[in-house]
């Protein structure tokens, strides 16, 4: 291992831990809130089971606005909200707030698009068999879209890692922030390059895991 990584290994492990916390919360938020929001968006579309133009347009607009924000500005814009929720706008815990907000918007859109790929006939068969909305979602939609949903979550997770590098501005820490503070700002370009390599390895591993899982569960 390069000497410089050995020298900073404690700080690097702490930073990796901070990134895991921020990205972990983002993934949780994406699954627990983003997926239902994306599903609801899909079902409220024209021609779908819960077709409702007002609800769809409103939700669609909110998701679009959040996704349109430059992430750095979103973090700053959400400071009062973060302070209200966490009690402070500084630190890793505070950083999870804007991260979860963008995660929900990001994954809800990708989930909606994944569900659009489910053949309409499958939905039609579900309705004709007397399935309830809950049955249609869990026994038909998610089953048919599971591979696309995994791939979407993989893409989202990689984006969350990228977003997390910005969280240094509110003291969120993380591996990206470490690269900027210790590598760029202290003119340790070699350290920055090593950190970038570590991040690239992370991303490759996540992508590989996502693709492998998606392929394994896709029987269509």
């Amino acid at each position: 291992m390069p000497d410089i990584l050995v020298e900073y290994q404690t700080e690097i492990w702490v930073s990796i831990g901070e990134t895991f916390i921020m990205v972990g919360f983002s993934i949780l938020a994406a699954l627990l809130i983003g997926l239902p929001v994306g599903t609801f968006l899909f079902l409220c579309r024209k021609g779908q089971l819960l077709e409702n133009q007002v609800v769809f347009s409103s939700l669609n607009l909110i998701v679009n606005i959040i996704r349109s924000f430059p992430f750095l500005l979103l973090v700053i814009f959400l400071i009062p909200f973060t302070r209200f929720i966490i009690g402070t706008a500084i630190g890793t815990a505070a950083a999870t707030v804007p991260m979860t907000v963008i995660a929900i918007a990001h994954y809800s859109r990708l989930a909606e698009q994944s569900l659009l790929d489910v053949p309409k006939g499958v939905m039609e068969a579900a309705v004709s068999m007397g399935a309830s909305i809950k049955d249609i979602i869990f026994k038909f939609l998610y089953v048919e879209a599971r591979s696309a949903l995994v791939l979407s979550l993989t893409t989202s997770t990689i984006s969350f890692i990228s977003y997390s590098t910005i969280m240094g501005v509110v003291g969120g820490g993380g591996i990206g922030d470490f690269a900027i503070r210790y590598g760029y700002q202290q003119f340790r370009t070699d350290l920055m390059v090593y950190i970038i390599i570590i991040m690239v390895i992370f991303v490759q591993l996540i992508q590989f895991a996502g693709i492998t899982l998606a392929r394994k569960i896709d029987k269509r």
């Binding site: 053949p119 006939g121 499958v122 039609e124 068969a125 309705v127 004709s128 068999m129 007397g130 399935a131 309830s132 038909f140 089953v143 048919e144 599971r146 591979s147 569960i217 896709d218 029987k219 269509r220």
Partner: peptide, 23 residues
């Protein structure tokens, strides 16, 4: 629930089969 029960007694077959590919 009532319309769902009625549909369960009226099975349907489609040109495109509409089977669940992942099952």
């Amino acid at each position: 629930k009532r319309i769902r029960q009625v549909r369960q007694s009226l099975a349907m077959i489609f040109q495109g089969y509409h089977l669940i590919g992942n099952k």
